[in-house]
Design a binder for these strands. Structure first.
Lengths: 332, 332
DNA sequence: CTGAAAGCGCTTACAG
DNA sequence: CTGAAAGCGCTTACAG
């Protein structure tokens, strides 16, 4: 079933059929109605490959995630896909998985499929780690949105979760509301996102006149456990810990309980992402909600705006919120 | 940069360029080498839309997941995407989100994009709920793999996690190794997957001469909490609970601890999926590993086999494993 | 081993 | 308001 079949059945040219298919105005009302009826009757769906080839637009977006097994990325990817789909775009999903060597192949693939634009989910894409692989291929010819990173790429759009500010406020909350004075930071490596969280921590600690204590560990339960052990070895007087990830914070809580420290009685704990993990942890984790739904939705909207000539803002910030649960509170 | 440019630069016809692009044998070795050099020099990538239009194969797969925010689905979707990508296929990802009405639009979209085949992740797609929407559109003309469901669809392939057997063995383990005699089942609705888990539970209870106690609840922490409350209200002597999902089991554990029951001292708990949630729970959850990686990989492999004429098995089973953690053990 | 030509199913100036 | 024709960038019989 092609546009030729429809044209023949309707007794018009394919040009006219194409016009009503694309909602052009210059078609006689009766002709349109008739063609619409034939279309309906035949259950015709146009071949998107042919449309794309002829029109130079595929309504397809390349969505590059770090790894959708990570709840943070899967939630954003989910919202990106749902929003794009509502706006008439399809998503080709790629999982980068930290393997820089795959990036060129993925990008070639997306270009060969003539995607209209790109969305990168994860701050790693905006950092030095990927710069070489991305810069050589992304020349700014197609709209590109980075989530949680501001790359030095011509014409790129960015959606930034305000993690620095959120981390700062979390530390201030621990100080003012929970009466903590020895607050350590547990981070997870060297992405842009990690750096801004750390910056927020340091800013708060500075302005409050406290001393900074920092540990870097793996993003996992075991990572949280070992970070807690080594931090308490060197700084036994710590009374609060802020983590840049919920799962790792769960590991931290587990180790604290194992060694007989109460949470939050002895030590308050703050996680990050406000994921289901923060609710499952006992005591449940106070955590920073980085508004993943908002973020995904906004990113998809920006891309559609750019593609449809509506000129969106180049950089959009999404505010984060501290969600208070049981792992923080007054010291005992 | 098109195939014409390459042909001109190499001094041959586009037919010959196309031949070397597609690895056909009937090309002179020298000609091939020369064309390959030109190709390399120009960094040419063929337009997949044009290829697809001409060849009737797009190397694109429609991947329909229930919801990739669910760790079970995102893990399978991840593995599906990675495997397909290795095999040269791209994935268009769709999130069904339980909204049956979206299914027709998604399928139309995938057909209009001329996908070569489909993978459905989640037993709901094989059930009555979706039958109407799927049966009318999926006529068996394109290879289709269902994960965790056996639909009545002509020519569909199935990858089935052996959940029934796993659930049966979990109950037997509770009976023999943990000395439990009052074992209840907490399920989450009426999908094929849920039914087979329940069947396994009932088979075990039957053969052990025990009484079946069943609760159906929502798949969430709150669902687990309320299921535990209502089960213990009516059957205070319960000494073990098997859940069909880890998150809900976490909720169950939380409620048990709240009302002063020890886990596993008073009541043993078994979860399902062997997700990170089972490790985060305190006590950590004994859980059934349904081998999501295997499953995703096998499903992608089957689809590629079918597309490339290798005639895979119609139904492949993936064995599950009981992973013992702290939430089960001898009664106190 | 190589190439001219038709065809895949659309869109889009252009002419009327 | 409508249509004939060219073109999008490939593949694939077919002929040589």
């Amino acid at each position: 079933m092609t546009i030729y079949d429809i044209a023949e059945k309707a007794g018009v040219s394919i040009t006219t059929v194409s016009r009503v298919l694309n909602g052009k105005e210059n078609v006689n009302a009766k002709t349109r109605a008739h063609i619409l009826a034939v279309l309906e009757e035949c259950g015709y769906t146009p071949n998107r490959l042919a449309q794309g080839l002829a029109s130079k637009a595929t309504k397809t977006i390349g969505v590059m995630a770090v790894d959708i097994r990570d709840i943070h990325h899967s939630t954003i990817a989910y919202q990106v896909e749902q929003t794009l789909s509502t706006l008439g775009y399809s998503s080709i999903l790629c999982n980068f998985s930290g393997n820089k060597n795959r990036l060129p192949d993925y990008l070639d693939m997306l270009f060969s499929r003539q995607v209209d634009g790109f969305i990168f989910i994860g701050s790693v894409f905006a950092g030095d780690f990927c710069r070489g692989e991305l810069a050589s291929r992304l020349d700014g010819s197609k709209p590109t949105v980075f989530i949680n990173g501001t790359p030095s790429l011509p014409g790129a759009y960015c959606v930034i979760e305000q993690e620095e500010d959120a981390m700062k406020r979390a530390v201030e909350y621990l100080y003012h509301q929970c009466d903590r004075r020895h607050i350590a930071f547990v981070g997870m490596g060297d992405t842009a996102s990690e750096r801004s969280k750390r910056k927020g921590y340091e800013a708060a600690v500075d302005s409050l006149g406290l001393t900074a204590h920092t540990a870097i560990t793996a993003q996992s339960l075991a990572g949280g456990e070992s970070a807690v052990s080594s931090l308490l070895d060197t700084h036994p007087s710590l009374d609060a810990l802020v983590f840049t990830d919920d799962i790792t914070a769960c590991g931290g809580v587990r180790r604290l309980l194992q060694i007989g420290r109460s949470v939050p009685g002895d030590i308050a704990v703050v996680g990050f992402n406000n994921s289901l993990y923060s609710e499952i942890c006992i005591p449940s984790l106070t955590s920073i909600d980085n508004r993943m739904y908002e973020t995904g939705k906004i990113a998809a909207g920006i891309l559609a705006d750019a593609l449809e000539g509506r000129e969106p803002e180049a950089v959009v910030s999404v505010g984060c919120q501290l969600v208070i649960r049981d792992s923080t509170g007054i010291r005992i």
